[in-house]
Computed example of a mutant assay.
Amino acid sequence: MWLIVKALISAAVIVAVAELSSRTPRLGALVLTLPIISILAFTMSWSKDHDMLAISRLARETLILVPFGLPFFVPLAISTKTGLSFWPSFGLGVVMAALTIGAWFRFGP
């Protein structure tokens, strides 16, 4: 039952951001940049296991990996200047983020 509740909460956040961003992109971006998913994940992890060591490790890894995921947004942000439509910009962003995250996993500590 708890798994279903977690999935519904996560889905609600995603739908809320999508709906809000179509009406007010700046407000949608604000909600998207809030660490809502991280807050939910930490809270759910704590309520399940009460393992502060695991949460601390997850927080450190997340803190390191967030900047490596940021290249995903670059092609979407400049798509009006490059003339790329949604799917090519999205695909290029996925590739760019995969490359930076992959490089971290391959060459990082």
Score class of each variant (00 low, 15 high):
residue 91 G to M: 10
residue 58 L to D: 13
residue 91 G to I: 07
residue 39 I to R: 06
residue 79 S to F: 00
residue 48 K to N: 15
residue 101 I to R: 09
residue 43 T to L: 13
residue 100 T to F: 07
residue 61 E to Y: 14
residue 63 L to W: 11
residue 19 E to P: 07
residue 86 F to Y: 12
residue 91 G to V: 04
residue 28 G to L: 05
residue 98 A to Q: 06
residue 46 W to N: 09
residue 80 T to Q: 14
residue 55 I to H: 04
residue 93 G to L: 03
residue 74 V to H: 02
residue 43 T to Y: 13
residue 96 M to H: 00
residue 47 S to K: 11
residue 93 G to W: 00
residue 23 R to G: 01
residue 37 I to V: 15
residue 94 V to R: 05
residue 42 F to Y: 14
residue 59 A to M: 08
residue 65 L to S: 02
residue 42 F to R: 09
residue 23 R to M: 09
residue 26 R to F: 11
residue 68 F to H: 07
residue 99 L to K: 06
residue 37 I to C: 12
residue 37 I to R: 07
residue 89 S to D: 01
residue 22 S to V: 07
residue 75 P to Q: 02
residue 35 P to G: 13
residue 25 P to S: 00
residue 86 F to I: 04
residue 52 M to D: 13
residue 39 I to S: 13
residue 44 M to R: 08
residue 62 T to R: 09
residue 66 V to T: 10
residue 59 A to E: 06
residue 67 P to K: 04
residue 17 V to M: 02
residue 39 I to D: 07
residue 107 F to R: 10
residue 37 I to H: 11
residue 54 A to W: 03
residue 102 G to R: 02
residue 100 T to W: 03
residue 56 S to P: 03
residue 20 L to I: 14
residue 63 L to Y: 09
residue 63 L to R: 08
residue 56 S to Q: 12
residue 89 S to K: 00
residue 72 F to P: 04
residue 30 L to T: 10
residue 52 M to N: 12
residue 23 R to T: 09
residue 61 E to A: 13
residue 36 I to V: 14
residue 21 S to N: 06
residue 68 F to D: 00
residue 38 S to F: 12
residue 66 V to K: 05
residue 20 L to K: 04
residue 40 L to N: 11
residue 88 P to R: 04
residue 25 P to V: 00
residue 25 P to I: 00
residue 20 L to Y: 01
residue 52 M to R: 13
residue 100 T to M: 05
residue 18 A to K: 08
residue 106 R to K: 14
residue 103 A to K: 09
residue 41 A to E: 10
residue 88 P to M: 05
residue 56 S to D: 10
residue 56 S to V: 06
residue 98 A to T: 12
residue 73 F to Q: 02
residue 89 S to P: 06
residue 74 V to R: 04
residue 99 L to F: 12
residue 101 I to Q: 12
residue 103 A to I: 11
residue 89 S to W: 03
residue 59 A to W: 04
residue 106 R to L: 15
residue 73 F to C: 08
residue 59 A to K: 03
residue 32 L to R: 03
residue 74 V to E: 02
residue 67 P to G: 03
residue 68 F to V: 03
residue 28 G to H: 06
residue 89 S to H: 02
residue 21 S to I: 08
residue 87 W to S: 11
residue 62 T to C: 09
residue 80 T to K: 14
residue 20 L to A: 08
residue 45 S to N: 13
residue 105 F to Q: 07
residue 54 A to T: 10
residue 19 E to R: 15
residue 39 I to A: 15
residue 105 F to W: 11
residue 32 L to M: 11
residue 106 R to N: 10
residue 76 L to A: 03
residue 79 S to K: 10
residue 54 A to Y: 05
residue 41 A to I: 14
residue 65 L to F: 06
residue 61 E to K: 12
residue 38 S to K: 07
residue 36 I to Y: 05
residue 56 S to L: 10
residue 76 L to I: 07
residue 75 P to T: 00
residue 74 V to D: 01
residue 59 A to S: 13
residue 102 G to F: 04
residue 94 V to G: 04
residue 26 R to H: 11
residue 50 H to A: 14
residue 97 A to H: 01
residue 91 G to N: 09
residue 101 I to M: 14
residue 30 L to P: 03
residue 107 F to L: 14
residue 107 F to S: 08
residue 22 S to N: 10
residue 106 R to V: 13
residue 41 A to T: 15
residue 86 F to V: 05
residue 97 A to D: 00
residue 94 V to H: 01
residue 32 L to A: 15
residue 72 F to W: 08
